[in-house]
Computed example of a mutant assay.
Amino acid sequence: MPILTLSLVADGEVKKHRFVDHDGEQVDTAGAKALGVSRTDADDGGDLAVDVLGTTVVEAGGSFDKGAALKSDADGKAVDSVSDEDFVLAEALEESGGDGEFVEVLLVRYQKPEFTE
């Protein structure tokens, strides 16, 4: 259940349930920062609803476990975050069996700290 949904103007085509950046563009760089997840499809210049706080549904780009820290892939889909430089955008509230599944997530935003010994 989203707590806060913002209205943006889409910058390019955006598919629903994908990570979106602060400019209203579907995230197209793996591990990049994002504002939230699109609730609707939108054409360039169209109205776009973006969930930014609370829980939402996102399209998975691969399999991951419940509780996994998730980042965006190059298509704006949620994938398991494994790099220290990733921006973690959500935590999985249910597991994903693979690409194209829709899963509920808790929206969070932080960059993984670099691990040092």
Rank of each mutant, 00 (worst) to 15 (best):
S81Q: 07
A90W: 06
G98I: 11
E95G: 12
D44M: 11
K33T: 04
V108D: 10
V57H: 15
E94I: 03
E94F: 08
V27A: 09
V14K: 05
T5K: 13
H22S: 05
D23R: 07
A78K: 12
E101C: 05
L89F: 02
K16T: 09
L8I: 00
A74K: 13
V50F: 06
V27P: 03
D73I: 04
L8K: 13
A92H: 01
V37F: 04
R18S: 02
T40S: 09
T55A: 12
L106Q: 12
A32V: 01
D65R: 13
D99A: 14
H22M: 04
D51L: 08
D41W: 07
G97D: 13
A49Y: 13
V105Y: 10
G76H: 10
Q26V: 01
G62P: 02
P113E: 13
F115H: 14
G24V: 03
A74S: 15
R18I: 01
E95A: 15
I3D: 14
S38H: 05
D11M: 03
L6Y: 00
K77R: 15
H17K: 07
L93H: 10
D41T: 03
E101T: 12
G24P: 00
S7D: 11
P2I: 01
D21K: 02
A60C: 03
E13I: 01
S63P: 08
G100N: 11
P2A: 12
D65I: 05
V103R: 15
E104V: 13
F87A: 00
P2R: 09
H22Q: 06
F87L: 00
G98S: 07
Q111M: 10
S7H: 04
L53A: 11
D43N: 10
L70F: 06
S72M: 11
D75V: 02
V88N: 03
K15C: 01
K77A: 04
L35T: 02
L8V: 04
A78Y: 09
D11Y: 10
P2D: 11
D73M: 06
I3T: 14
K112L: 09
E114N: 08
V108E: 12
P113G: 08
R109D: 06
A78H: 04
E104K: 09
G54N: 09
S83K: 14
A34I: 01
A60N: 13
F115A: 13
I3K: 15
H22T: 10
